[in-house]
Design a protein around this nucleic acid. Structure first.
Lengths: 114, 114
DNA sequence: TTTATTGATTACCTTTTGGTAACTGATTAC
DNA sequence: GTAATCAGTTACCAAAAGGTAATCAATAAA
């Protein structure tokens, strides 16, 4: 009976993975924060983030919208405009971002001098 | 003078990115938690995580060790054994993991029924 | 009328990440 | 002697992520 008991780490890791999938990747948080800061239009967001291409931006905006972190609104004016804004759900990421930043700073101290 | 002022989001995002680089990827957290739970030996860790290959495990263990989240100890016995253990620094990830889990659960409620 | 801007899409290519399977040398069990 | 276990390494592939450049229709400005 040398069977190793190990805790149910899946009920922990599945939601962790969900979060990482939503905010992971090279651009997602940059784009989210750009919108959060008030950049509303596609080109405006694009210009606010150096090196970001239209293709990647279009794809990432779709992902962020699908996850309800940002809202895509069609303003039926002449000409039609499309506005991106942060949602209340998007704003709940604040704690997460702060936690990641705090640990990142701790980690730097641990890895480089302290 | 229509220059857009935007906050210094880099001092926020650089440490955030550091954290995501350290714990991101498909296997890092699974391996970390396996070691955390007490799996000490290479094959033991490998067997504790289904579908994980030796190549990926070897690479991820190196990364985790380089980031001082786990410790690789050579036990100079006959035969030599190699033990992986979690470090104190590794344990500081607990808050981060819990925050990610909590937001992941909130997010699921937001996306699917609530 | 030509040019520029809007919010994208498409085809193509490169880089990164992850996966498969064979193999290593050292040791131990049968 | 043969087979298995230890901690990995190596070569080769496949998939995913990301990047480049051209193009689109609609509208507006020169």
């Amino acid at each position: 009976m040398e069977k190793k008991e190990h805790k149910d780490c899946m009920s922990l890791l599945v939601p962790v993975r969900d979060t990482l999938d939503v905010i992971g990747g090279k651009w997602k948080l940059l784009i989210l924060i750009s919108v959060w800061e008030g950049n509303k239009y596609f080109r405006e967001i694009e210009r606010s983030i150096p090196k970001l291409s239209t293709k990647v931006l279009a794809k990432e905006l779709k992902d962020l919208e699908a996850n309800k972190l940002i809202r895509r609104t069609i303003i039926d004016d002449y000409p039609v405009r499309i506005e991106y804004t942060i949602t209340e759900h998007g704003k709940t990421l604040q704690t997460v971002i702060e936690t990641l930043r705090d640990w990142g700073l701790t980690h730097r101290k641990e890895i480089f001098g302290k």
